[in-house]
Write a protein that binds this DNA or RNA. Structure first.
Lengths: 164, 164
DNA sequence: CCAATCCGTTTGCAATTGCAAGCAGGGCGA
DNA sequence: TCGCCCTGCTTGCAATTGCAAACGGATTGG
C-alpha cells in the first residue's frame, strides 16, 4: 500500500528544498542519494527508507523528526513534555517498569478528580482529617518502595541525572 | 554506512520483547509483520524500513522515537525526553506526588544498573544467566499501590493507552 | 507413541528500493 | 548555428525488503 500519504512527505521535501533555493541534484549530492531517486521521492513515486529520510533531513539541515512526522512515521503527539510520553521514550526502563510508572502517574491524575471536580483547588489531600477516603500518601507506600529506592523517603532526590 | 550501531537495533528490540515477556510471534502479530522477518531483524540480518520500525514500536508499546534513536536514525539530542523534567513540569501533580514519581523512577534506573552495565553497548553473550526474575518488583509493590491505582497490578497489563 | 502446539529459524519468491545511464529542454556565449 | 552546462525526468537493472510456507526442536497430553 504505497499510498498518497507518501506523497505528502515528498511535497514537504520539495518545499523545503525550494525554500533553501537549491537544485534537486544539489540536495541529492548533499544527502548522498541519486538525483533520479530524489526526484521520484519528491513526486511520491517512491517510499524512502528511514535511512534515506535521515540523510535527506541532514542535507536539508532540518530535524529528522520533522520529516518522520510528515511521513507519518511518528505520531506528532509524541512530542515531549508529556510525562507518559517521556516514560515511553525512556530506553533505559523495562516494559514492566514503564507500565508501573504510567499506572502510578495515571492513578495520581485520577485521584484528584475523584469526588468532585473542584477546579483551581489546590487539591492537597494532605489535610489531617483524612482517614480512609484519601490515603495520606504513603508511609506504607514508600516502605514498600524502599527495597528499590535507595533514598526514597529521603528528601534528597538524588542528583544523578546523568551518567557517562 | 556510518553507524555500525544499526546492528544493535535488533538486540534492543529483542531485549524489549523479552522484558515484555512475549514471544517473537506474538510481537510479530501485534506489529503486523511476519515472524520470520522479525526474527531476522532481531538478529541484525535485515534492516527494517521506517514503517516497519514504527509498527514494531507500537507493538512494543514504546515510543517510535526510542527505536529511531537506537537505530541511529535520530540524533539523541533531538529527543529531549527526560522523565524527571516532564514530571517536574506537570502542573497537575502535587509536590508530594512528583516526589514519589521521581523517586520511583530513579529507583528503577538504579536497579537496572546494579547488575547490568547500562546500555547494551557490549555484545553480551549469554546473559541469560541473570535469569530475568530480576527483582521482586511486583506483588507487595503493587499491593501497596492499589489504594492509589485503579488498575495497577491486574495480572494483565492490558492497558489500552493507545494514542493513535 | 504419536498428535497437537508452541517456540525460533531457514528457505525460496514477488515486490520494492535505490542507482547508473540516458533523455528532453532551458539559458548563455561564440 | 553549434556547443556547453544547467535544470528535472524516464528507463532498465542489481540488490534488498518483506512474506508464505516449511523445518527442527521442546512441551504437553490423549
Amino acid at each position: 500500500m504505497a499510498l498518497p500519504k507518501v506523497g505528502s512527505i515528498g511535497e514537504y521535501i520539495r518545499e523545503q528544498r525550494q525554500q533553501a533555493k537549491i537544485s534537486l541534484r544539489q540536495l541529492a549530492a548533499a544527502a548522498g542519494v541519486s538525483n533520479p531517486y530524489l526526484s521520484q521521492i519528491e513526486r511520491g513515486l517512491r517510499k524512502p527508507s528511514a535511512e534515506i529520510l535521515n540523510q535527506i533531513a541532514k542535507g536539508l539541515h532540518i530535524s529528522a523528526q520533522a520529516l518522520y512526522v510528515q511521513a507519518g512515521l511518528i505520531e506528532d503527539r509524541e512530542t515531549p513534555s508529556d510525562v507518559v510520553t517521556a516514560i515511553r521514550a525512556d530506553t533505559h526502563l523495562t516494559e514492566r517498569q514503564r507500565q508501573v510508572l504510567i499506572d502510578i502517574y495515571e492513578s495520581f491524575r485520577k485521584e484528584k478528580r475523584t469526588g468532585d471536580e473542584q477546579t483551581s483547588q489546590k487539591a492537597h489531600p494532605r489535610s489531617d482529617s483524612v482517614t480512609d477516603d484519601e490515603q495520606p500518601m504513603p508511609e506504607e507506600f514508600l516502605a514498600a518502595l524502599e527495597p528499590y529506592a535507595a533514598s526514597a523517603g529521603n528528601g534528597t532526590v538524588n542528583q544523578e541525572t546523568k551518567e557517562g
